[in-house]
Simulated scan of single mutants.
Amino acid sequence: MNASLLYPFIIIAGCLQALGNSMNAQLRGRLINPWLAASVSFLPIVFVFTMIFLALPTPLPTLDTLAAMPWYAPFGGVAGAVAVFGGLAFIDKVGAGPFNGLTLTANILTSVAMDSFGLFGLQGGGFKPMPWIGGLLMAVGVAFIARVTPDKGAEKDEGHGLNPRLLYPFIVVAGALQAIGVVWNAQLRGALVNPWLAATVSFLPVVFVFVFVFLIRPTPLPTKQDIAGIRWWMPLAGITGAVAVFGGLLFVDKVGAGAFNGLLITANLLTSIALDHFGWLGMKQVKAGASRLGGAALMIGGIVLISLS
């Protein structure tokens, strides 16, 4: 099967991921406590995947496939969730533009490195200049897009707290782990055979962590007015975003980590630009000016280089 035939499904997953991010932002605004909001967002994911697995319990893993599973494979969901933790902890300190730019750039370059060197069980393609040039183009595109954010609405970044650059290494690690988590999830799916079981196992530790942190830090809590303002679609944010994780379980070993994450991120950011431009889903309206459109063009050029190499 031609791997490029899977690209439309990955693009749809990236669009849904962007919608999920905006829906999560609205949910957090209503539930006040970010850990409560994260728990409410992730719990339906586990419920849905568990119900589908119970309805479609076969195929099941064998002792041989379980024995061949790397020890780190069940932690793909946790690795990917580090970026969520980072957003909760750091985005108000460094700003949305620098945070998203750093995480996505680290994600892209880590994906290209895994494809080139065959890390974590991927088939290594060796060093090829075109994917790296494409990755760098995408990184520059992300930087241009991140210059204009709903928080600032200007072409220049401003300061965000005391010495925010001290947090940059942690944010870069979060972006790298996000790319690594996609590959770990694919390996988990290979070991557990059933993709619905693999998705359930991937998300369970994430839900446990969010609920545990909320129980430790249960305040502040939403008021009755806050809860009354919750729209029916807000708690579905996690399920919308989880389509990308499930896509990784199914497709990353077929198209490669670089192409998968590149397509996913490009679709995510282009959808985010549209959401900001039109002010959909309650987002603060930010017009798609030359900086954002130019960054989008660079990202599209980058993914073409990665995909065709």
Rank of each mutant, 00 (worst) to 15 (best):
R231V: 04
N33L: 12
L119A: 06
V78T: 12
R189G: 01
G159N: 08
A179T: 03
F47Y: 00
G289Y: 14
N2V: 00
L249Q: 06
I300S: 02
A186M: 03
G14M: 09
I227Y: 11
A296M: 07
S111D: 04
W132F: 12
T223I: 10
I180D: 04
D226H: 15
I91A: 13
K128N: 06
T266K: 00
S39P: 09
L221E: 07
L122T: 03
G86E: 02
V252M: 01
G247F: 06
L264M: 15
Y7I: 11
G247D: 05
L109F: 08
G295W: 09
Q285R: 15
F127G: 01
T219M: 12
G294L: 09
L104A: 10
M114T: 05
N100E: 00
T103A: 06
I227C: 11
I303H: 07
F85I: 11
G229L: 13
L31G: 07
T62I: 14
K93C: 03
F251H: 05
L167A: 08
L56M: 15
L63M: 14
T223F: 07
F90L: 12
R189S: 02
G135Q: 05
I227N: 08
I216H: 11
V183L: 03
A191Y: 02
R189I: 00
L270F: 13
A113H: 06
V82D: 01
W71Y: 13
S39A: 15
V172A: 08
N163D: 10
G181N: 03
D157A: 12
Q225C: 02
L204Q: 01
G175R: 02
K156G: 01
L305R: 06
F49W: 13
G101Y: 05
R165K: 13
F120C: 01
V193T: 10
T219C: 00
F90V: 12
L215H: 11
S111K: 02
P164R: 04
T103F: 05
V193I: 14
I91W: 02
F75N: 02
R292G: 10
L293A: 08
A237Y: 05
G161L: 07
S291L: 15
I265V: 15
L250I: 13
I239Q: 01
G279E: 11
N2K: 10
V213N: 04
V213A: 05
A68E: 12
T50H: 00
H277M: 11
A18S: 13
T50Y: 05
L270E: 03
F214D: 07
S116T: 13
A154C: 10
M51T: 14
I171V: 08
A79F: 14
V173L: 08
A274Y: 09
S202A: 12
Q187V: 01
L250Q: 11
